[in-house]
Design a protein around this nucleic acid. Structure first.
Lengths: 242, 242, 242, 242
DNA sequence: CATGAATGAGCCTTCATTCAT
DNA sequence: TATGAATGAAGGCTCATTCAT
């Protein structure tokens, strides 16, 4: 049995190596830039070996998307488990979203590739199911906190404003900032010295704007932020800082 | 002479059709997804004809980038010419940026493609020059308004905050929101019914946050916005609304 | 009529310019290296204009071959008209052959191209006829001198030796030497400082070897050579020396 | 292991077939006439298969050049090892050169193609090295015999005459004769019945002319020639005669 | 299972030739 | 007659995928 599991482990490890090799190819050159030849050559495996793990190129792509999506789900789960008020918990979700964007700034590009090429149809039902369940899980988590906040009267929404607008706001600012940061090569020329700090300020104004109590002026948002970092995502913050 | 100009016009039109055909291929499939074969097949022209217009694939890509970049430059120029306070003029620039993102949500993807593949080197000096001059022009316009605002004491910045942070903020929120809008297919499921409205609210909080007077509470920002729409970008708003 | 002839002259001149442009393309890159596009581009004519002169690529090639072949015929005719003994006249033919090789070292390459590609069949009957008649003329000239020599008893041949062996010898040495000179880039490394002089010596030994009287030892071959240069090919020698 | 070697052998054989197919295309049509498509079509292999053997067209060309150059080197080595006087050994080299020209009359055309197109730069360093070492080896062999001859006082050179002139003479006559033989289709009409015999006579006069003792009149050059044929190149002469 | 040779569709680009103006 | 846009057949090369060993 130890032989079995060793073998299993080796297979897992190789699979991981394949995905790690594929990632930059896909991100930098798009769908057609990912080449089985290049993966095989880089890893010094034969092409047949690659095909023993993934039956086609599209399976590799979807596997990559599953990896990041799963990571995001874990982050959201851990954030939602943070002990505190609903404001603090959505704050933690915001942090999770931020961390996710920072850890995987290219995830959105990957999602776009999947949607724009006709990849989805070529993938196995098994992997498609995993992907969908991850997405549903994330929605459920955020939805749960929102319901909690309303139940605790922390959040009263103006007419026409739904809780998800906040989520969208966080998400939107994060994606936008990081998209520009990764894309533009003239931020410094434009006069942006510390894009991350500007980004953080925007986030706080947005949270207040939705009136989710306590407002950032009424509680030590920085302290909470520090607590979240320290208690929920210590490793991730270390990784990001490095 | 009318014969001449008819032929010329036909050529221009076909060039435009080529670019219009190339655009989605490039955006959806990336650099390697843009194929001269597919363009020719789609337009029912021979490949040779395509090459009579563009000497290589890269020239098509740079021509696309020039088109949107020129459009942006025109929008910025018109916005900067808006008669009003510096707040109103930067507001107009914000509107221009917003319009640009809405009209060409994929422009940033295109810029990324140009930068990540080695396209730049294969293009003609002529087109490279056009591209560069457009970029310089945009920077100069925004820089000019910022200098005006500071000179008129409309803008006083906290320590460590530079005027360009505002530009970055506007830009960031715009790009992010539109990136999500174009990418995600589950916004409605997430509960975002009107993403554009949420996006607009964020923009206003950001402008106030930088303290560029008069604050939105102290002037009728909606009215100004309407004036900008009506006076500066009537056609564009019609196009976006459609 | 002067209008007519001016027009005619212009046409002739353009035809000549086309051929001059085609020559290096054909010699350096072979049949497929000769491109109507490049000719048109180089001369700033439209492709249609080129086709008004030559109905296809092959016609240009054959026209080039006709040009050099006609030049050779003229040289042979002038050599054969040299006043002197048969030895001196064949000497003059040798000089003509030498001059031809020096003036048109690439003629043989051109001939080879014509023979190896299926050019001949695509050319017009008119040009084919010109080509053939030139070749027959050359043969006739040399054959005539040989018959003269035998009639005058200047030449007595051993059994199995035919007069044409001499022609072949001259031709062979000339072609070989010039072929190496144009082809090899390591003659100096091989120790060959003055290939032309070595070549000339070989030629003289060959002529004596065939016993065509008077032998070079019995007459001032250098003086005759000088006379031929001065009286028959003054311009050509100037051109070669330059 | 026999499986291994069988596969290896098959690959070798196919490589050889590719080269054999490429040779006439290259010789008859030049650099641009050699087409991977045509090779693949002729051999009924897919284009990919050809590319598994040779990474580009240029590699095929250089491989062809290496093949003949290596053959020449072997011939020269065997000739230089002939037991006899320096005169006899250079005679053997002459025979080797002759044999080479007869076996590979198109080798010079190939060399010309390599030099006139920009092939050299696209080839692998490995093949370039092989090529260069072959050429150096040939030069060294001939240079060695020349030094021997001078050391043994078999060769005394007039002022201004260097030993290499002889080499050039042999080379020149060989190349020229064979060039004409392969190029011309009217040798018989010109009256040349046995071009090879004429060629041989010229060679002998040249050797004598340089005074390399013993002169051909003083030794039985025909017998030595026969000995070289029989002892050094029996197979080659059989092949040529066939 | 691992290997890597074979396949063939597809990509970018060139070019001889035609033809409407 | 001159022009030059349009055509489409190649050509060099890449790459996902298959399959015999």
């Amino acid at each position: 049995m130890s032989t079995q599991s060793r073998k299993q482990r080796e297979i897992q490890e190789r699979e991981q190596r394949i995905l790690e090799t594929a990632w930059p190819l896909l991100i930098e050159q798009g769908y057609l830039g990912l080449s089985m030849d290049r993966i095989a050559e880089t890893l010094q495996y034969s092409k047949g070996t690659i095909y023993n793990h993934f039956s086609c190129k599209e399976e590799i792509i979807i596997a990559l998307a599953i990896q990041t999506t799963e990571k995001r789900t874990r982050l959201f789960e851990r954030a939602a488990a943070f002990r505190g008020t609903s404001r603090e918990r959505i704050h933690a979700i915001g942090s999770a979203a931020t961390i996710f964007v920072q850890l995987f700034p290219d995830h959105f590009k990957l999602e776009h590739i999947i949607r724009s090429s006709s990849i989805w149809e070529k993938t196995s039902e098994k992997r498609r199911t995993i992907m969908r369940s991850c997405e549903r899980r994330c929605m459920g988590i955020v939805g749960g906190i929102v319901r909690d906040a309303i139940a605790h009267a922390d959040l009263t929404l103006d007419d026409g404003i739904v809780p998800e607008d906040l989520v969208f706001g966080l998400w939107s600012i994060s994606v936008g900032a990081f998209s520009i940061i990764t894309t533009s090569d003239q931020l410094v020329e434009l006069g942006i010295q510390e894009p991350f700090e500007t980004y953080r300020q925007n986030v706080h104004r947005l949270l207040d704007g939705f009136g989710w109590r306590p407002l950032s002026a009424d509680y030590d948002s920085v302290a909470v932020d520090d607590r979240i970092r320290a208690e929920v995502f210590p490793e991730e913050f270390r990784a990001i800082s490095a």
